[in-house]
Amino acid sequence: MNHAQQVDIELIVNHEKINCRVPVRVNLVDFLRNELGLTGSHVGCEQGVCGACTVEVDGTMVRGCLMLAAQADGSTVNTIEGFAESGRAGHLQQAFATHNALQCGFCTPGMLASALEYLEQGGVADRAAIRQHISGNYCRCTGYQAIVDAIEEVAGQTETTDGQ
């Protein structure tokens, strides 16, 4: 493969239309970080194991390190910056802050993305199910309990709202 080969891509990132020429070998998270300055998505392992680069592509949470930027051509991408600015993750952000569900913050954007996925798929306030759902996101600092507390609280609020 010619490493210098480049392709033109067009995509929507956080509601903004992007046209860019990228080297074919650049992965999505490096593109988001280095080309668009969206540094909220983090690079932890580059193997799809740690979850720090989790972003949303066409409605699905994916690993930004396991997808090439070129593959996102024509896609709609949302990152932590988008979730925060749109208010979509507001309830989770507040619960994470209240429960101190983050320390160094490096896993946090990916963890929030997975938590958001859990809630938007109708996840309930079940600690074991929450633990299972976020078990692809590595956090070295918290020991996970506070993260589970935060997601459980929001899931509980959602259930209550639904019940009404």
Binding site: G40, S41, I80, E81, A84, A89, A97, P109, L112
Partner: peptide, 11 residues
């Protein structure tokens, strides 16, 4: 915390 939760950390 709110900064880090919005993807606005500075690593």
């Amino acid at each position: 915390a709110h900064n880090l939760l919005a993807g606005r950390g500075q690593y």
